[in-house]
């Protein structure tokens, strides 16, 4: 237990900040994922064959390739790609991207593929009559989407989105390979310097369980709020 003291004696404060980092990366990745989903969901539902296959390629490739491989692609390739773009504009120095950004971005792309599938499924299960009625009544595009389609879609999507959140939260453990100090990386450092890996990895497991448990409680509340009948 002494190992968990806050301050110089123990690893309590380090692990606390590492947990905050895990939460921060998960939320950022989830938001980046939503942006990707907002971009690719319309593509997947599009009638245009080219656009449709772009949307399908994104979800198929990302969901069929291990998360770790995607992370390695961005970890090793990210700064190279940005340096290439910079060199076009005549900037030739070495650029290093922040581990937080690389991590959130690679997890975000993965989480986006799952979110895209969730939104697609939710949109497709809205009754066609709702779309038609909104069009017939002559609502403008803003009301059509934000007041009629989106509320119905969210209601169907939230239970599945909470699964995506759980997957994303657990996937963030993988970006420890890039050196970002989140729960796993901090446990690795602590285990290395105290030679007590069993304790620290088990404690990491407890931290993750707490995070998944607490977020489930919150999301369930959200779910009941949004699944109220109209």
């Amino acid at each position: 237990m002494e190992l968990l003291y806050f301050g110089d004696k123990g690893w309590g404060d380090e692990l606390f900040f590492a947990t905050l980092m895990t939460i921060a990366v998960s939320i950022t990745a989830m938001i980046i994922g939503f942006l990707f989903a907002a971009l690719f969901t319309p593509l997947k539902l599009s009638n245009n064959k080219v656009l449709n296959s772009i949307g399908n390629a994104y979800t198929t490739v990302i969901r069929g390739v291990p998360e770790l491989l995607v992370i390695y692609l961005f970890f090793f390739g990210g700064s190279g790609a940005i340096m290439f773009v910079a060199s076009i504009f005549g900037y030739n120095d070495y650029i290093e991207i922040n581990a937080f950004l690389t991590g959130s971005f690679s997890i975000g792309i993965i989480s986006g593929a799952y979110s895209t599938e969730v939104f697609r499924g939710a949109l497709q299960s809205i009754d066609m009559g709702q779309f038609e009625a909104a069009k017939v009544l002559g609502f403008n595009k803003y009301i059509y989407f934000f007041k009629i389609i989106l509320p119905q879609m969210l209601r169907l999507a939230i239970p599945n989105l909470s699964n995506v959140w759980q997957i994303t939260l657990k996937d963030t453990s993988l970006i420890s390979v890039t050196g970002l100090v989140e729960i796993m990386r901090q446990s690795y450092i602590a285990a290395g310097s105290t030679r007590d890996p069993l304790f620290f990895y088990s404690f990491a497991a407890v931290l993750y369980l707490m995070l998944t448990f607490l977020s489930m409680q919150l999301l369930n509340r959200l779910e009941t709020k949004y699944s109220k009948g109209y």
Partner: peptide, 23 residues
């Protein structure tokens, strides 16, 4: 099933590979 589904697979591997050797 709750513990194994609620924690990342990476933690599970590390506990078994690095942790159990400590006992």
């Amino acid at each position: 099933s709750y513990i194994f589904r609620g924690t990342p697979l990476l933690v599970q591997i590390f506990i078994i590979y690095f942790g159990l050797g400590q006992i």
